[in-house]
Amino acid sequence: MIRFDYARPADVSEAVRAGSGEHAAFLAGGTNLVDVMKENVARPLQVVDINRLPLTDIEAREDGGLRLGALVTNAATAYDPRVQQRYPLLASAILAGASPQLRNAATNGGNLNQRTRCYYFYDVDTPCNKRNPGEGCGAIGGVNRIHAILGASDQCIATHPSDMCVALAALEAHVQVTGPDGDRAIAFSDYHRLPGDEPWRDNTLRSGELVTAIDLPAENFSTHYTYLKLRDRLSYAFALVSVAVALRLSEDGRIEVARIALGGVAHKPWRVPAAESLLQGEQPGERVFQAAAHAITEGAVGQGQNSFKIELARRAVVRALGQAAAGTPQSQTDKRIA
């Protein structure tokens, strides 16, 4: 870990000022930033501790939605009664991730901004375009069992590791940010980005911008939802593939709205509107589920070791759609897959 200047601003504008430097980093729960700093992957010269900022509330929004403060912990969010009752998909996804200790420290804003778990990104003695632009990608042709099958580039095949974000993508949340140029809201699908030719950019935050809140829209999919996560052990492991599904069913049982987001397969939570519209107006069933599963994985490319994820993702989508349609969401405690 390199040496840095430490600041603990008391309000947001002071934090934005302190965090505007080229080598500044905002520190919240620290569960990811301190980790990557210890690995010398992140080397900020100024660490701006934002834990004292007043971004620690969950509050109702006028449009019927909910605003999650950026500094509310993942645990406090998942166990908040309003989130549990109205956004159980989000609660479930959060509880599928990390460990209780990490969720107690990690914040909502930090969850959005956590870095990939790519082995090469974490190991400074190996090449990585995300860490050191132009150095090459060790994972391509290397050990890539956990890597992306969708939306990757020839520069980077890393995945975004979050579970929470997969649910937020399905819920079509908005990210509230503030920065040197003022406040703005970013649609969740625009928040994270694909690696392309700039794999070092995980998201569309501009320099010095700070996440202040996550807004959940009024439509909460509290009846027909699921978060299904497949991993190498049954807890405390990152997803090989995960699926968030949110459905709105009509009175006659047809699908009116479908949202499917995949985790563990791309540089961002993966959604394909065309796959979702295949389900619209249909009665839930194996045939349409299969069609959607194929559509959302269209164009998937394996790297060898991770090629199994393509079939696994398809099967997981079909199963998750079934769980959501039946109103039998996946438990994060009972490891039997519903």
């Binding site: 430490y6 603990r8 520190l27 729960g29 620290g30 569960t31 301190v34 980790d35 210890k38 690995e39 660490v47 501790d49 834990n51 645990a75 460990s99 209780p100 200790q101 990490l102 107690n104 420290a105």
Partner: peptide
């Protein structure tokens, strides 16, 4: 492990369990 991957450093901060290895001490004022 020193990286939040094992839980051996679990302590309670204001009654809540966290990994002490990932907390910079100064943030706990």
């Amino acid at each position: 492990c020193d990286h939040g991957q094992c839980g051996a450093c679990t302590v309670l901060i204001d009654g809540r369990r966290i990994n002490a290895c990932l907390k910079l001490a100064v943030t706990l004022e």
